[in-house]
Design a protein around this nucleic acid. Structure first.
Lengths: 214, 214
DNA sequence: TAATCGGGTGAACGCTGTTCACTTTTCGAA
DNA sequence: TTCGAAAAGTGAACAGCGTTCACCCGATTA
């Protein structure tokens, strides 16, 4: 039943966005009365939170899944970013909604004394850990700058991917408009990924073997 | 009068966010009836659009303003990113709201045949142009990769800055949590800026003068 | 003086999330 | 099989929302 409600919510969400998703609209979709929904969810916000969490789960599994398929580190790193962006823009309203809440100062104060263990247990934490591990691996391989804080590196990757996804969602005119290169969409995402990866690269190795290719 | 309404909106907005800003709440704030507001704004959306536009104006002027103060290119590029992020997170709700609307497919179709001139006339377009010019200058100086499409480079910079700002707004736990480096906030933003800048750098110059420093 | 018109109001409409008293269904125990 | 409790579902209602519309009032203008 909860599943049916969530599925209906997902459907309406994808079609009409967060604005079009109302309890009454949802109730109509599943042929129940609006009050019935409150037997399964305490509030609309609780329902939305569940939706967001499930989207984070999808995001995590998608990005985590690319690891196995790409033995080459550079390709894998690039695939992390591109799959992240692709998964995000495949469901624009979901992705935007998943990041839509702004915590109040009190909420920030509460969360501040969460430690690393607690954070890693959350979906966001797991997703973040994937990136941290990626950075660590890059550093171990000597491809990424070893002086970099892995957490900061992971944040930079996330920020860059997140920003590109949202820019493509909220201002689609920008990525489309490419009078110079004339290749819309996918290629630019890969190029962006490469820029981020190069930004993390180890600086000016002593000339022994020029291993990393552009 | 319009100004008074917008000022009140800005006030409520900053304090209670987009959720707390209602027409009735606004009317109460300026001691008028709700219907009075409709003599000056056609709809709430129109009012919000004006607010967003004004925020873009602030963003543009701030970022554009750093150009004069920093003669060194690298410092200027870094300042572009850091001021952008600082301006964004100084008014979290404004910044998030400025990017909150997701255009429908029809709207995208309409905007698709805007050309470069029309786009540059908008605030977003001007802000984007600042970044494009920055990339062009970097390429002219030989600091940035000349094979890069300047528009794509500008998009990468924007995406990275945008993503970092939003990550700090929506998930403040992340940038705060730095058990390794222990420097919260500002330093990480600068580090992120440097990563983006390095990502755009010209690849492996023939060893003549090692001009760019980390 | 009379008419027009911009600025302001209160009541109302249809929508929203949410609650609550109520009925119906289900299901295990006596 | 019957009974009673718990679960499932309902409809009406409340407060608040964006928005509209008929109305009013004071100033400007003919």
């Amino acid at each position: 039943m909860r599943e049916a409600i969530l599925a209906a919510a997902e459907r309406v969400f994808a079609k009409e966005g967060e604005i079009g998703l109302s309890i009454r609209r949802l109730a109509e979709e599943i042929d129940y009365s609006p009050s019935a929904i409150y037997k399964y969810f305490g509030s609309k916000e609780e329902l939305l939170d569940e939706l967001k969490e499930s989207f984070f789960e999808r995001l995590l599994s998608q990005v985590d899944g690319v690891g196995a398929k790409n033995p080459d580190f550079h390709a894998r790193a690039r695939a992390c970013v591109t799959t992240y962006v692709a998964t995000a823009i495949a469901r624009p309203h979901h992705y935007a909604a998943a990041f839509s809440s702004i915590p109040t100062p009190e909420q920030i104060a509460v969360r501040r004394n969460l430690d690393w263990e607690d954070f890693i247990a959350t979906r966001k934490g797991q997703a973040f850990k994937v990136l941290v591990d990626l950075v660590l691996e890059g550093q171990a391989l000597g491809v990424f700058d070893r002086s970099l804080d892995p957490l900061n590196g992971a944040k930079s990757i996330w920020a860059s991917s997140h920003g590109l996804a949202l820019l493509m969602i909220h201002m689609p005119l920008l990525p489309e408009m490419q009078p110079c290169t004339a290749q819309p969409g996918g290629d630019f995402v890969a190029a962006h990924a490469d820029i981020v990866i190069r930004g993390l690269a180890a600086p000016a190795e002593p000339p022994q073997e020029n291993g990393k290719r552009s």
